[in-house]
Design a protein around this nucleic acid. Sequence first.
DNA 1: GCAAGCTCTGGAAACGTTTCCAGTATCGTT
DNA 2: AACGATACTGGAAACGTTTCCAGAGCTTGC
Lengths: 355, 355
Amino acid sequence: MKEHTNSMTNIKDIAHACGVAVSTVSRVLNNHPDVSEETRVKVQRAVAELHYIPNNSARNLVKTSSDTIALLVKGVNNPFFSKLIKVIEREITKRGYSLELHHMDTSEDELLVGAQMANERKLIGILFLGGRFNYSPEELALINVPSVFCTYTNTFGNLSASAYSSVAIDDKQTARFAVDTLVSLGHRKIAILADNEDDKSISELRFQGYKDALESHGIPFDSTLVACAGTFSDMGAIYRATSELIRRNDSFTAIFAIADLMAIAAIKALSDHGKRVPEDCSVVAIDGLELSEYTLPTLTTLVQPVEEMGLACANTIIELVESRGENRQFTFDPVLRSGGSVRRISDLSIPHQPD
Amino acid sequence: MKEHTNSMTNIKDIAHACGVAVSTVSRVLNNHPDVSEETRVKVQRAVAELHYIPNNSARNLVKTSSDTIALLVKGVNNPFFSKLIKVIEREITKRGYSLELHHMDTSEDELLVGAQMANERKLIGILFLGGRFNYSPEELALINVPSVFCTYTNTFGNLSASAYSSVAIDDKQTARFAVDTLVSLGHRKIAILADNEDDKSISELRFQGYKDALESHGIPFDSTLVACAGTFSDMGAIYRATSELIRRNDSFTAIFAIADLMAIAAIKALSDHGKRVPEDCSVVAIDGLELSEYTLPTLTTLVQPVEEMGLACANTIIELVESRGENRQFTFDPVLRSGGSVRRISDLSIPHQPD
DNA sequence: GCAAGCTCTGGAAACGTTTCCAGTATCGTT
DNA sequence: AACGATACTGGAAACGTTTCCAGAGCTTGC
């Protein structure tokens, strides 16, 4: 609004002020070795005095690249993602890069959006957050900058490990563990609350883990105990899916919700149908939001190590961008946080005493 | 990773392919009028066939500006902000600009960070989200690009309305309304759960509204009923602040929490101290998160029109950036959403003691 | 004493655009 | 027939960097 017209000091001004060539100033700015100590301090002083700030556009133009890493977030409105984004953003910025954030609808193809952005040459790397995971080599080839897939499974179909980078928990194993926990408390009629049964996403893997767990305990899979909300984030839809499940078959004594937010909406639905948690129904989830420690009841949930995952994302993309290191897959193990939403089945037989 | 070396098609290639000058191609790309229909289609076809994508760095260099608007978010981990960010981001992107997101600690000075970014000339505008609001004209002058302050109060001390743009609810009035609601239900011993009593932020305004409401109803202000958590987002700290309040003075029959997340943590603390909501204590908050419709009990809260607010933010900054329109202050009115967290005082099991 | 090798420096090209300026052709008007 | 206006086009400068290349001045080794 003020000195907007007045052009800023540039590298030429510095050169002129010091009586050296622009190339020398450039060398000082980029910490090139071939410059005498004397000129170095002289230039540095001038830079400070004249409040010189490099023009990134010019720099990017000649270097034919920018310093911007994009974070493409797909269709999830989840506090877990918010936290993860924050961690990633902090780290990326700290390391001297810029982060550009883009949210996408589920309808958009994240790879196409990424390819488009990469082609505009405004990007040096892409972090994908959320979405599917069954990319073909051809699709992956669309992206001509380094990329990392975050909170995706680390099993990309039959792609070789050198073909992509990922940061994730072992979704299937984690789901198994959640169900195991319920079984070990005596539950056998366990419903699942998922996003979508067959959408090649996190949801499918967790669903698979649920089925595996049941099988390993000799519990027959019952499709009437499956509730699909078709979303991770729309609590209304999750609530309705749970209500429907209850109407359809309320014989279950426990629900495995594939996300904390789902569990919260489910508990509300149960409550509205006269089922108390954990007295009438246990609930276990995956995520480990801070929020879930403060709901009534508190959630028993598998905590994703969001801080470590964010760091892994940031470090990996930066390594790839700087052409150090190869593609890598990180797998993290969530840890169980016990809350008030589960109870041993034997306690269920004891009728609830009203206080 | 693949055609990375192979240089991309540029404007010169297009010019050569069409047998025209680069300036002509540029004119076509920028929709300048002075170009014949014949050449226009010829160039456009070549652009499509050769998959030409403009180099933004070069463009920004000559135009001495970028297409990037920054969103500086300060120290809040709130689903309300997440939603707002998403709305803003969608709109900014839709209008052809890029959004660069930065989270800051409460310790950082948002204006200094903004000024630094603006000076790097990577920015054409800044949206500030969260933080204080008592900026001096001198501080505001540090920012030499258009800016909008979001979810801040729209009363910037004694700055004239032409000096800044803002998008906010009327915090004081909203707090008043929340407290009025409780009073109208018969409550007189009303505690407040705030961020900080005197930090020149939203918190202070809502605190002021609380005091005003009490006064207008002839209820004496009781400082022992004030709980300050020192944060909007750290639920642990909010929980502890509430616990402390209960230990200090548990005579209150209602709590006004200045944010939904605070109310949720408070309800947990109340519950852990044997106080049921709403039977023993009513709770009302400000925010209107979707989440709050699914907690137990559901929250009675004043819903901020997040969609409209996000649009106002995006529209205003774009108008300012495009040098259309003057600084403006938007004030939105939250609407009450009734939940299960409040109850008329006569319903309370503990009889009300007249003072 | 001279070639060869360092260390440091300056000049200039290059990056891919936009935009100013000048120029040509066509056309209508006088 | 001359002229200006109009419609379009091309050439070239400019934006602010980085980097390549060449060269100047020293030192070193023979």
